[in-house]
Amino acid sequence: MSKFMTLKFVPVLVAVIVGSTFNPACAEQLLVVAHPESMIGPLSREQVAHVFLGRLKRLPNGEPVTAVEVESLREPFYRRLIGRDISEINAYWARLRFSGRTQPPPRLPSSKDALAVVLADRNAVTYVEAEALDPRAKVLWRLEP
């Protein structure tokens, strides 16, 4: 009986994997931006990753930094930044949140909402599409498509 069930189980696994779907990624350049008068300077890719993955809340120069996420851009952002699927990022945050390490960045629905926060908070950083960039925002890093 067990062998029979095993034989049935494997094809089911194969079938569900073959039927997988992919989400289209954003084709635009993404920009990591901050307040125009922010003391946060240009960032390296590692620093951007550490900030948005909750590992750094203060840069080596002492400047505090608060990440703000854009719900609609999370998937292309993390795929380009560290090559990871958004499901992996969600699992990562579950590990940190429920072990008391830190809480994930607040998520806002659009680039417009996130830019509004960044333009009002000198410590905030977020990511936006290039076409949504407010000329007042300070660009810290660019993520190519």
Partner: peptide, 12 residues
């Protein structure tokens, strides 16, 4: 995978 054996969503 985090400091807990209870958070199933956190591991594969």
């Amino acid at each position: 995978d985090g400091d807990s054996r209870h958070v199933g969503y956190a591991y594969t």
